[in-house]
Simulated scan of single mutants.
Amino acid sequence: MKPLTLWQYEVRRAGWAALLGPPIAVAVGVAAAVANPMPSDTTTARILLGTLEMALPLAAGVACASLVGRDPAVELQVTSSTAYRVTLLRRMGVTLGWTAAFAVPMAVVLIATGWWHRWPANHGAVVGQLTWVAPTLGLSALGFAAGAVFRSPGAAGALVTTLWAIQQFFAGAAQEHLPGRLLYLFATTRGAAPDDWTANRLTLLGAAAALIALAFVVLGRSERLISGEDE
């Protein structure tokens, strides 16, 4: 299979959740900023950066949660020359790349127009990109690992959305202790202790790496994947 054809196929197999999630997230976020009932530079900037930190990571996480279990004949996939877990990681890469295709231009526009710097806790134009990179990788890795463990896109997606909602609506409780602060997804727009932001972003990246490694190990057990199709 030619490389271009291969990637086109992986895009189709990633599914509509991966393709539609990011543009819808950006559209909703921009619409919310425009329709803000209390317009001010600070609140509008917070909504726009919140789109990057909250909406896009949720879309990516739900999409990655749906990757495992999409193939109707897994027993054929595990016998191919390319390991099935490599195929799934490739689809995860497609999903994350598509998310970045919307996040990066939006961040560039916000920086160029000055909206990025109108939020006091923006952390700069370069390092500040961890505003969306860290939670996107964190939630995506959680969804991917949950899909591998549960073998159920529904259960994996529910875990991602539940964690997102808990941290969204119970922000104070989520940050009462150091582990919660280090794993808090919305440290840029919902607040973080001055010395916690960098550690928080790095912890999320580390957690993402660990979860992807876990998924890689679990997906290597082909007999478990095949038996899961019969349940």
Rank of each mutant, 00 (worst) to 15 (best):
Trp98Tyr: 11
Leu67His: 07
Arg70Phe: 02
Met38Tyr: 13
Ser40Val: 06
Gly69Glu: 04
Val109Pro: 05
Ser40Ile: 06
Val30Glu: 07
Val74Phe: 00
Gly69Phe: 04
Val108Leu: 15
Pro37Ile: 08
Ser80Thr: 08
Ala107Thr: 15
Leu58Asp: 06
Ser40Thr: 12
Val74Asp: 02
Ala63Leu: 07
His123Arg: 13
Thr51Trp: 06
Met38Gln: 14
Leu89Met: 14
Ala73Ser: 12
Asp41Gln: 14
Met54Pro: 00
Ala73Asn: 12
Trp116Lys: 08
Ala33Asn: 09
Leu52Ser: 06
Phe102Pro: 06
Trp132Leu: 05
Pro57Ala: 06
Val68Trp: 07
Ala32Asp: 09
Leu96Tyr: 10
Gly128Cys: 07
Gly93Gln: 10
Leu110Ile: 01
Arg46Ile: 00
Pro39Val: 02
Thr99Val: 12
Gly128Tyr: 03
Glu53Lys: 07
Leu76Asn: 07
Leu76Ser: 05
Ile47Val: 15
Val127Glu: 13
Gly69Met: 04
Leu88Val: 04
Trp98Phe: 13
Ala32His: 02
Leu110Pro: 07
Thr99Gln: 14
Ala73Lys: 11
Val126Asn: 05
Ala103Ser: 15
Asn122Pro: 03
Ala33Tyr: 04
Val86Lys: 11
Pro37Asp: 09
Leu52Thr: 00
Met38Ile: 02
Thr95Pro: 11
Ala101Lys: 10
Gly128Asn: 05
Thr99Gly: 05
Leu88Lys: 02
Val94Tyr: 05
Val109Phe: 12
Met38Phe: 12
Thr99Ile: 03
Ala60Arg: 06
His123Gly: 00
Trp115Lys: 11
Leu56Asp: 04
Thr131Ala: 10
Asp41Arg: 14
Met38Asp: 15
Ala83Thr: 04
Glu75Thr: 00
Val74Gly: 02
Ala32Gly: 01
Ala33Trp: 08
Ala32Trp: 08
Leu56Tyr: 02
Gln129Glu: 14
Thr87Lys: 09
Ala63His: 06
Ala83Tyr: 00
Val78Ser: 03
Pro39Leu: 04
Val94Ala: 05
Gly128Glu: 02
Thr44Asn: 10
Ala103His: 06
Pro57Val: 04
Gln129Ala: 09
Ala101Phe: 14
Ala60Ser: 15
Ala112Leu: 15
Leu56Thr: 01
Leu89Gln: 12
Ala83Glu: 11
His117Thr: 15
His117Asn: 14
Ser80Asp: 10
Pro120Asn: 08
Pro120Gly: 10
Glu75Lys: 00
Met106Cys: 11
Val62Trp: 10
Asn36Gly: 01
Val34Trp: 15
Pro37Leu: 10
Thr43Lys: 09
Pro120Gln: 08
